[in-house]
Design a protein around this nucleic acid. Structure first.
Length: 451
DNA sequence: TGGGGTTAT
DNA sequence: ATAACCC
Protein backbone atom coordinates (compact mmCIF):
# COMPACT_ATOMS: atom_id res chain seq x y z
CA UNK A 1 0.00 0.00 0.00
CA UNK A 2 0.93 3.63 -0.14
CA UNK A 3 2.05 3.74 3.48
CA UNK A 4 4.34 0.79 3.08
CA UNK A 5 6.21 2.61 0.34
CA UNK A 6 6.67 5.59 2.59
CA UNK A 7 8.30 3.47 5.27
CA UNK A 8 10.34 1.56 2.73
CA UNK A 9 11.92 4.82 1.68
CA UNK A 10 13.76 4.94 4.99
CA UNK A 11 13.48 8.34 6.57
CA UNK A 12 10.06 9.92 6.80
CA UNK A 13 9.26 11.67 3.53
CA UNK A 14 6.94 14.03 5.30
CA UNK A 15 9.45 15.92 7.39
CA UNK A 16 12.42 15.93 5.05
CA UNK A 17 11.40 18.41 2.42
CA UNK A 18 10.41 21.82 3.60
CA UNK A 19 8.60 24.29 1.41
CA UNK A 20 9.49 27.81 2.52
CA UNK A 21 6.60 29.46 4.31
CA UNK A 22 5.13 32.21 2.18
CA UNK A 23 6.44 30.65 -0.98
CA UNK A 24 3.96 31.71 -3.64
CA UNK A 25 4.17 28.40 -5.46
CA UNK A 26 2.69 25.30 -3.95
CA UNK A 27 -0.44 26.47 -2.22
CA UNK A 28 -3.26 24.14 -1.24
CA UNK A 29 -6.64 25.53 -2.26
CA UNK A 30 -10.10 24.03 -1.91
CA UNK A 31 -13.15 25.05 -3.88
CA UNK A 32 -16.42 24.11 -2.19
CA UNK A 33 -19.51 24.06 -4.37
CA UNK A 34 -22.94 23.29 -2.94
CA UNK A 35 -25.25 20.98 -4.89
CA UNK A 36 -28.22 22.83 -6.45
CA UNK A 37 -28.16 25.24 -3.54
CA UNK A 38 -31.56 26.95 -3.73
CA UNK A 39 -33.29 23.59 -4.20
CA UNK A 40 -31.49 22.18 -1.17
CA UNK A 41 -32.57 25.12 0.97
CA UNK A 42 -36.17 24.63 -0.19
CA UNK A 43 -36.07 20.92 0.65
CA UNK A 44 -34.86 21.78 4.16
CA UNK A 45 -37.71 24.31 4.51
CA UNK A 46 -40.25 21.88 3.06
CA UNK A 47 -39.18 18.31 3.90
CA UNK A 48 -42.32 16.93 2.23
CA UNK A 49 -40.77 17.93 -1.12
CA UNK A 50 -37.80 15.62 -0.65
CA UNK A 51 -37.73 12.89 -3.25
CA UNK A 52 -39.93 14.82 -5.66
CA UNK A 53 -38.59 16.63 -8.72
CA UNK A 54 -38.25 20.22 -7.52
CA UNK A 55 -37.51 23.43 -9.38
CA UNK A 56 -36.90 26.91 -8.02
CA UNK A 57 -38.66 29.55 -10.07
CA UNK A 58 -37.86 33.21 -10.60
CA UNK A 59 -40.27 34.93 -12.96
CA UNK A 60 -40.70 32.51 -15.87
CA UNK A 61 -37.40 30.69 -15.35
CA UNK A 62 -36.47 27.56 -13.43
CA UNK A 63 -33.19 28.90 -12.08
CA UNK A 64 -32.14 25.66 -10.45
CA UNK A 65 -33.57 22.25 -9.64
CA UNK A 66 -32.76 19.15 -7.63
CA UNK A 67 -31.26 15.99 -9.11
CA UNK A 68 -34.61 14.21 -9.34
CA UNK A 69 -35.72 16.97 -11.72
CA UNK A 70 -32.45 16.86 -13.65
CA UNK A 71 -32.85 13.16 -14.28
CA UNK A 72 -36.20 13.97 -15.86
CA UNK A 73 -34.61 16.49 -18.24
CA UNK A 74 -34.95 19.79 -16.41
CA UNK A 75 -31.93 22.08 -16.82
CA UNK A 76 -30.76 25.15 -14.99
CA UNK A 77 -32.23 28.42 -16.36
CA UNK A 78 -34.84 26.53 -18.34
CA UNK A 79 -38.08 28.23 -19.29
CA UNK A 80 -40.96 27.19 -17.00
CA UNK A 81 -42.99 26.12 -20.04
CA UNK A 82 -40.24 23.88 -21.40
CA UNK A 83 -39.59 22.46 -17.94
CA UNK A 84 -43.27 21.60 -17.35
CA UNK A 85 -43.44 20.08 -20.80
CA UNK A 86 -40.36 17.93 -20.18
CA UNK A 87 -41.48 17.07 -16.68
CA UNK A 88 -45.20 17.54 -15.90
CA UNK A 89 -44.76 16.30 -12.30
CA UNK A 90 -42.22 19.05 -11.61
CA UNK A 91 -42.96 20.89 -8.37
CA UNK A 92 -42.10 24.58 -8.51
CA UNK A 93 -41.40 26.91 -5.62
CA UNK A 94 -40.86 30.62 -5.99
CA UNK A 95 -37.30 31.70 -5.29
CA UNK A 96 -37.44 35.41 -6.03
CA UNK A 97 -36.91 36.30 -2.37
CA UNK A 98 -33.29 35.41 -1.68
CA UNK A 99 -33.41 35.99 2.09
CA UNK A 100 -33.24 32.37 3.23
CA UNK A 101 -30.67 31.47 0.55
CA UNK A 102 -28.50 34.40 1.59
CA UNK A 103 -28.72 33.49 5.26
CA UNK A 104 -27.81 29.85 4.62
CA UNK A 105 -25.04 30.96 2.29
CA UNK A 106 -23.38 32.99 5.03
CA UNK A 107 -23.76 30.10 7.48
CA UNK A 108 -21.72 27.98 5.07
CA UNK A 109 -19.05 30.65 4.73
CA UNK A 110 -18.86 31.08 8.50
CA UNK A 111 -18.54 27.33 8.98
CA UNK A 112 -15.65 27.24 6.51
CA UNK A 113 -14.03 30.23 8.22
CA UNK A 114 -13.77 28.09 11.36
CA UNK A 115 -11.34 25.84 9.50
CA UNK A 116 -9.29 28.71 8.15
CA UNK A 117 -10.19 32.41 8.11
CA UNK A 118 -9.12 32.83 4.48
CA UNK A 119 -12.45 32.20 2.73
CA UNK A 120 -13.54 33.85 -0.50
CA UNK A 121 -17.16 33.69 -1.57
CA UNK A 122 -18.15 33.30 -5.20
CA UNK A 123 -21.85 33.83 -5.52
CA UNK A 124 -24.07 32.31 -2.83
CA UNK A 125 -23.06 28.69 -3.29
CA UNK A 126 -19.30 28.58 -3.82
CA UNK A 127 -16.36 29.28 -1.55
CA UNK A 128 -12.58 29.10 -1.93
CA UNK A 129 -10.46 28.36 1.13
CA UNK A 130 -6.67 28.65 1.24
CA UNK A 131 -5.59 25.59 3.22
CA UNK A 132 -1.85 26.12 2.86
CA UNK A 133 -1.22 27.10 6.48
CA UNK A 134 -3.57 24.53 7.92
CA UNK A 135 -1.90 21.77 5.90
CA UNK A 136 1.49 22.96 7.10
CA UNK A 137 0.38 22.68 10.73
CA UNK A 138 -1.00 19.19 10.23
CA UNK A 139 2.23 18.10 8.58
CA UNK A 140 4.24 19.27 11.57
CA UNK A 141 2.01 17.35 13.96
CA UNK A 142 1.70 14.27 11.82
CA UNK A 143 2.26 11.07 13.77
CA UNK A 144 3.63 8.64 11.23
CA UNK A 145 2.29 5.62 13.10
CA UNK A 146 -1.34 6.38 12.37
CA UNK A 147 -2.39 4.04 9.56
CA UNK A 148 -4.92 6.44 8.06
CA UNK A 149 -2.69 9.49 8.27
CA UNK A 150 -1.66 9.41 4.61
CA UNK A 151 -4.80 8.27 2.85
CA UNK A 152 -6.42 10.47 0.26
CA UNK A 153 -10.05 11.40 0.75
CA UNK A 154 -12.33 11.18 -2.27
CA UNK A 155 -11.37 10.86 -5.93
CA UNK A 156 -8.05 11.66 -7.56
CA UNK A 157 -8.36 13.25 -10.99
CA UNK A 158 -7.40 10.82 -13.74
CA UNK A 159 -6.77 8.16 -11.10
CA UNK A 160 -3.21 9.39 -10.94
CA UNK A 161 -1.22 7.47 -8.30
CA UNK A 162 -0.05 9.42 -5.29
CA UNK A 163 3.68 9.53 -4.66
CA UNK A 164 4.20 9.64 -0.91
CA UNK A 165 7.79 10.79 -1.46
CA UNK A 166 6.54 13.90 -3.20
CA UNK A 167 5.86 16.61 -0.65
CA UNK A 168 3.46 18.37 -3.04
CA UNK A 169 1.37 15.22 -3.23
CA UNK A 170 1.40 14.83 0.53
CA UNK A 171 0.28 18.41 1.08
CA UNK A 172 -2.59 18.09 -1.38
CA UNK A 173 -3.59 14.76 0.18
CA UNK A 174 -3.87 16.45 3.57
CA UNK A 175 -5.94 19.11 1.80
CA UNK A 176 -8.31 16.40 0.58
CA UNK A 177 -8.76 15.21 4.16
CA UNK A 178 -9.61 18.73 5.31
CA UNK A 179 -12.05 19.09 2.41
CA UNK A 180 -13.80 15.91 3.54
CA UNK A 181 -14.05 17.28 7.07
CA UNK A 182 -15.53 20.49 5.70
CA UNK A 183 -18.18 18.60 3.75
CA UNK A 184 -18.96 16.47 6.79
CA UNK A 185 -19.39 19.57 8.93
CA UNK A 186 -21.64 21.19 6.31
CA UNK A 187 -23.83 18.13 6.31
CA UNK A 188 -23.90 17.52 10.07
CA UNK A 189 -24.36 21.14 11.10
CA UNK A 190 -26.37 22.59 8.21
CA UNK A 191 -27.80 19.58 6.39
CA UNK A 192 -26.17 20.61 3.11
CA UNK A 193 -24.29 18.51 0.57
CA UNK A 194 -21.75 19.75 -1.91
CA UNK A 195 -18.67 19.05 -3.97
CA UNK A 196 -15.09 20.03 -3.32
CA UNK A 197 -12.01 20.33 -5.48
CA UNK A 198 -8.50 20.45 -4.07
CA UNK A 199 -5.61 21.78 -6.16
CA UNK A 200 -2.69 24.19 -6.10
CA UNK A 201 -4.61 27.29 -7.25
CA UNK A 202 -8.15 28.65 -7.49
CA UNK A 203 -8.62 27.98 -11.20
CA UNK A 204 -7.66 24.32 -10.95
CA UNK A 205 -9.55 23.80 -7.67
CA UNK A 206 -12.67 25.19 -9.27
CA UNK A 207 -12.34 23.15 -12.43
CA UNK A 208 -11.65 19.92 -10.58
CA UNK A 209 -14.47 20.34 -8.07
CA UNK A 210 -16.99 19.73 -10.82
CA UNK A 211 -15.54 16.42 -12.03
CA UNK A 212 -17.56 14.11 -9.80
CA UNK A 213 -20.99 15.58 -9.30
CA UNK A 214 -23.20 15.52 -6.74
CA UNK A 215 -21.77 15.35 -3.22
CA UNK A 216 -18.26 14.13 -4.07
CA UNK A 217 -14.79 15.57 -4.05
CA UNK A 218 -11.77 15.41 -6.32
CA UNK A 219 -8.08 16.02 -5.80
CA UNK A 220 -5.90 17.29 -8.63
CA UNK A 221 -2.20 16.39 -8.58
CA UNK A 222 0.13 18.76 -10.43
CA UNK A 223 1.06 16.20 -13.11
CA UNK A 224 -2.58 16.03 -14.24
CA UNK A 225 -3.23 19.75 -14.57
CA UNK A 226 -2.66 19.82 -18.35
CA UNK A 227 -5.10 16.93 -18.81
CA UNK A 228 -7.69 18.85 -16.80
CA UNK A 229 -7.49 22.10 -18.72
CA UNK A 230 -7.41 20.32 -22.07
CA UNK A 231 -10.55 18.45 -21.07
CA UNK A 232 -12.38 21.74 -21.58
CA UNK A 233 -14.09 21.73 -24.96
CA UNK A 234 -14.03 25.50 -25.43
CA UNK A 235 -12.35 28.56 -23.93
CA UNK A 236 -15.74 29.81 -22.77
CA UNK A 237 -15.64 27.08 -20.12
CA UNK A 238 -12.56 28.67 -18.56
CA UNK A 239 -13.52 30.62 -15.43
CA UNK A 240 -12.38 34.19 -16.01
CA UNK A 241 -13.11 34.15 -19.73
CA UNK A 242 -16.61 35.51 -20.06
CA UNK A 243 -19.03 36.27 -22.85
CA UNK A 244 -17.27 39.34 -24.25
CA UNK A 245 -13.76 37.94 -24.19
CA UNK A 246 -14.95 34.70 -25.76
CA UNK A 247 -16.43 36.64 -28.69
CA UNK A 248 -13.22 38.61 -29.19
CA UNK A 249 -11.11 35.48 -28.98
CA UNK A 250 -13.31 33.67 -31.47
CA UNK A 251 -12.87 36.61 -33.85
CA UNK A 252 -9.13 35.90 -33.62
CA UNK A 253 -9.67 32.26 -34.48
CA UNK A 254 -9.14 31.09 -30.91
CA UNK A 255 -11.63 28.52 -29.67
CA UNK A 256 -9.77 25.80 -27.81
CA UNK A 257 -7.56 26.05 -24.76
CA UNK A 258 -4.61 24.99 -26.91
CA UNK A 259 -5.40 27.74 -29.45
CA UNK A 260 -5.08 30.24 -26.62
CA UNK A 261 -1.89 28.66 -25.25
CA UNK A 262 -0.11 28.86 -28.60
CA UNK A 263 -1.46 32.22 -29.81
CA UNK A 264 1.02 35.10 -30.15
CA UNK A 265 1.24 36.95 -26.82
CA UNK A 266 2.09 40.21 -28.58
CA UNK A 267 -0.98 40.14 -30.80
CA UNK A 268 -3.20 39.05 -27.91
CA UNK A 269 -1.93 41.97 -25.83
CA UNK A 270 -2.69 44.41 -28.64
CA UNK A 271 -6.19 43.00 -29.09
CA UNK A 272 -7.29 42.66 -25.46
CA UNK A 273 -4.94 44.92 -23.56
CA UNK A 274 -1.93 43.70 -21.67
CA UNK A 275 -3.78 42.99 -18.43
CA UNK A 276 -6.51 40.72 -19.79
CA UNK A 277 -4.20 39.12 -22.35
CA UNK A 278 -1.56 38.09 -19.86
CA UNK A 279 -4.09 36.91 -17.31
CA UNK A 280 -6.13 34.72 -19.62
CA UNK A 281 -3.12 33.30 -21.40
CA UNK A 282 -1.78 32.18 -18.02
CA UNK A 283 -5.18 30.69 -17.27
CA UNK A 284 -4.92 28.65 -20.46
CA UNK A 285 -1.85 26.94 -19.01
CA UNK A 286 -3.65 26.31 -15.73
CA UNK A 287 -1.68 29.06 -14.02
CA UNK A 288 -3.48 31.36 -11.62
CA UNK A 289 -1.60 33.28 -8.97
CA UNK A 290 -4.63 35.21 -7.73
CA UNK A 291 -4.87 34.95 -3.96
CA UNK A 292 -7.87 33.70 -2.01
CA UNK A 293 -9.15 37.07 -0.86
CA UNK A 294 -11.21 36.88 2.34
CA UNK A 295 -14.65 38.21 1.48
CA UNK A 296 -15.67 39.31 4.95
CA UNK A 297 -19.02 41.03 5.25
CA UNK A 298 -20.67 42.14 1.99
CA UNK A 299 -19.54 45.32 0.22
CA UNK A 300 -23.06 46.11 -0.94
CA UNK A 301 -26.70 45.18 -0.51
CA UNK A 302 -29.13 45.35 -3.36
CA UNK A 303 -32.66 44.34 -4.21
CA UNK A 304 -33.98 44.21 -7.72
CA UNK A 305 -37.17 43.40 -9.54
CA UNK A 306 -37.67 42.76 -13.21
CA UNK A 307 -40.95 43.04 -15.03
CA UNK A 308 -42.49 43.29 -18.45
CA UNK A 309 -43.22 46.98 -18.29
CA UNK A 310 -43.01 50.00 -16.04
CA UNK A 311 -43.91 53.22 -17.81
CA UNK A 312 -45.08 55.71 -15.22
CA UNK A 313 -43.40 57.57 -12.40
CA UNK A 314 -45.99 56.44 -9.84
CA UNK A 315 -45.48 52.82 -10.81
CA UNK A 316 -41.74 53.26 -10.49
CA UNK A 317 -42.10 54.93 -7.10
CA UNK A 318 -44.17 52.04 -5.77
CA UNK A 319 -41.61 49.47 -6.90
CA UNK A 320 -38.78 51.53 -5.48
CA UNK A 321 -40.55 51.76 -2.12
CA UNK A 322 -40.86 47.97 -2.01
CA UNK A 323 -37.21 47.45 -2.80
CA UNK A 324 -36.17 50.08 -0.29
CA UNK A 325 -38.27 48.60 2.52
CA UNK A 326 -36.54 45.23 2.14
CA UNK A 327 -33.14 46.85 1.95
CA UNK A 328 -33.69 48.87 5.10
CA UNK A 329 -34.47 45.66 6.99
CA UNK A 330 -31.29 44.08 5.73
CA UNK A 331 -29.14 47.07 6.54
CA UNK A 332 -30.69 47.16 10.00
CA UNK A 333 -29.69 43.53 10.60
CA UNK A 334 -26.16 44.05 9.35
CA UNK A 335 -25.34 46.80 11.80
CA UNK A 336 -23.09 48.79 9.46
CA UNK A 337 -24.33 51.89 7.69
CA UNK A 338 -24.32 52.55 3.96
CA UNK A 339 -23.00 55.93 2.88
CA UNK A 340 -23.97 55.66 -0.78
CA UNK A 341 -27.23 54.78 -2.50
CA UNK A 342 -27.64 53.81 -6.14
CA UNK A 343 -30.62 53.36 -8.42
CA UNK A 344 -30.28 51.07 -11.42
CA UNK A 345 -32.67 50.75 -14.34
CA UNK A 346 -32.90 48.66 -17.47
CA UNK A 347 -34.70 50.21 -20.41
CA UNK A 348 -36.71 48.13 -22.80
CA UNK A 349 -34.90 47.40 -26.01
CA UNK A 350 -35.64 44.77 -28.61
CA UNK A 351 -31.92 44.34 -29.14
CA UNK A 352 -29.71 41.85 -27.40
CA UNK A 353 -27.56 43.83 -25.06
CA UNK A 354 -29.82 44.90 -22.28
CA UNK A 355 -27.32 47.11 -20.51
CA UNK A 356 -28.16 48.94 -17.34
CA UNK A 357 -27.88 52.55 -16.33
CA UNK A 358 -27.33 53.84 -12.83
CA UNK A 359 -27.13 57.02 -10.78
CA UNK A 360 -25.72 57.16 -7.30
CA UNK A 361 -25.25 59.76 -4.59
CA UNK A 362 -24.07 60.10 -1.04
CA UNK A 363 -26.75 59.39 1.53
CA UNK A 364 -27.36 62.62 3.50
CA UNK A 365 -25.77 62.26 6.93
CA UNK A 366 -28.94 63.06 8.82
CA UNK A 367 -30.54 60.02 7.19
CA UNK A 368 -27.55 57.78 7.90
CA UNK A 369 -27.79 58.50 11.60
CA UNK A 370 -31.40 57.42 11.72
CA UNK A 371 -30.59 54.09 10.04
CA UNK A 372 -30.26 50.94 12.06
CA UNK A 373 -33.22 51.00 14.40
CA UNK A 374 -36.90 50.81 13.55
CA UNK A 375 -37.04 53.01 10.48
CA UNK A 376 -40.14 54.48 9.09
CA UNK A 377 -38.99 58.09 9.20
CA UNK A 378 -36.12 57.22 6.85
CA UNK A 379 -38.39 55.78 4.15
CA UNK A 380 -39.79 59.12 3.01
CA UNK A 381 -36.53 61.08 2.70
CA UNK A 382 -34.82 58.08 1.08
CA UNK A 383 -37.57 57.66 -1.48
CA UNK A 384 -37.22 61.38 -2.22
CA UNK A 385 -33.50 60.90 -2.88
CA UNK A 386 -34.17 57.87 -5.07
CA UNK A 387 -36.83 59.68 -7.11
CA UNK A 388 -34.37 62.48 -7.78
CA UNK A 389 -31.94 59.90 -9.09
CA UNK A 390 -34.77 58.41 -11.09
CA UNK A 391 -35.68 61.70 -12.76
CA UNK A 392 -32.01 62.32 -13.44
CA UNK A 393 -31.95 59.15 -15.56
CA UNK A 394 -35.45 59.08 -16.96
CA UNK A 395 -37.14 62.01 -18.59
CA UNK A 396 -40.59 61.51 -17.08
CA UNK A 397 -42.14 64.01 -19.48
CA UNK A 398 -41.35 61.64 -22.31
CA UNK A 399 -42.70 58.12 -22.72
CA UNK A 400 -40.48 55.43 -21.23
CA UNK A 401 -40.46 51.67 -20.85
CA UNK A 402 -38.42 50.06 -18.08
CA UNK A 403 -37.95 46.34 -17.49
CA UNK A 404 -35.94 46.45 -14.26
CA UNK A 405 -35.48 48.55 -11.16
CA UNK A 406 -32.83 47.96 -8.56
CA UNK A 407 -31.74 49.80 -5.44
CA UNK A 408 -28.27 49.30 -4.01
CA UNK A 409 -26.71 50.37 -0.71
CA UNK A 410 -22.93 50.48 -0.80
CA UNK A 411 -19.91 52.17 0.74
CA UNK A 412 -20.73 50.50 4.04
CA UNK A 413 -18.95 51.73 7.12
CA UNK A 414 -18.72 50.10 10.50
CA UNK A 415 -21.35 51.75 12.71
CA UNK A 416 -20.95 55.47 12.21
CA UNK A 417 -18.04 57.83 12.26
CA UNK A 418 -18.58 58.98 15.82
CA UNK A 419 -15.41 59.37 17.81
CA UNK A 420 -15.12 58.08 21.31
CA UNK A 421 -15.32 60.90 23.77
CA UNK A 422 -17.50 63.12 21.64
CA UNK A 423 -21.08 64.02 22.42
CA UNK A 424 -22.09 62.25 19.22
CA UNK A 425 -20.63 58.97 20.46
CA UNK A 426 -22.81 58.90 23.55
CA UNK A 427 -25.92 60.15 21.78
CA UNK A 428 -25.82 57.74 18.87
CA UNK A 429 -28.30 54.90 19.46
CA UNK A 430 -26.82 51.40 19.86
CA UNK A 431 -23.24 52.60 19.49
CA UNK A 432 -22.11 52.13 23.06
CA UNK A 433 -24.39 49.17 23.72
CA UNK A 434 -23.53 45.49 23.42
CA UNK A 435 -21.48 44.04 20.61
CA UNK A 436 -23.95 43.55 17.83
CA UNK A 437 -27.66 43.40 17.37
CA UNK A 438 -27.40 41.77 13.97
CA UNK A 439 -28.45 38.21 13.39
CA UNK A 440 -25.40 36.78 11.74
CA UNK A 441 -22.63 38.29 13.74
CA UNK A 442 -19.59 39.01 11.70
CA UNK A 443 -16.55 38.48 13.79
CA UNK A 444 -15.34 40.94 16.34
CA UNK A 445 -12.27 41.76 14.26
CA UNK A 446 -14.60 43.39 11.76
CA UNK A 447 -16.04 45.75 14.32
CA UNK A 448 -13.93 48.80 14.75
CA UNK A 449 -14.46 52.50 14.89
CA UNK A 450 -13.55 54.62 11.96
CA UNK A 451 -11.89 57.87 12.75
C1' DT B 1 -32.57 34.68 -18.60
C1' DG B 2 -33.08 35.92 -12.44
C1' DG B 3 -31.57 38.18 -8.51
C1' DG B 4 -28.00 38.74 -6.85
C1' DG B 5 -22.60 39.77 -6.15
C1' DT B 6 -17.19 41.52 -7.23
C1' DT B 7 -13.26 44.22 -9.28
C1' DA B 8 -11.17 47.23 -12.86
C1' DT B 9 -11.25 51.26 -15.70
C1' DA C 1 -20.77 55.41 -14.33
C1' DT C 2 -19.89 51.66 -16.90
C1' DA C 3 -18.11 47.31 -18.20
C1' DA C 4 -16.35 43.12 -17.40
C1' DC C 5 -16.46 38.96 -14.60
C1' DC C 6 -18.77 35.25 -11.24
C1' DC C 7 -22.89 32.38 -9.47
Amino acid sequence: MERAEAWAAGSSPVHDQVVPAGSSSSRVIVHVDLDCFYAQVEMISHPELKGKPLGVQQKYLVVTCNYEARELGVKKLMNVRDAKEKCPQLVLVNGEDLTRYREMSYKVTELLEEFSPVVERLGFDENFVDLTEMVEKRLEQLQSDEPSALTVSGHVYGNQPINLHDILHIRLLIGSQIAAEMREAMYNQLGLTGCAGVASNKLLAKLVSGIFKPNQQTLLLPESSQDLIHSLNHIKEMPGIGYKTTKRLEALGISSVRDLQTFSSKILEKELGISVAQRIQKLSFGEDNSPVTPSGPPQSFSEEDSFKKCSSEVEAKNKIEELLASLLNRVCQDGRKPHTIRLIIRRYSSEKHCSRESRQCAIPSHIIQKLGIGNYDVMTPMVDVLMKLFRNMVNVKMPFHLTLLSVCFCNLKALNTAKKGTIDYYLTPSLSTTSRSGKHSFKMKDIHMED
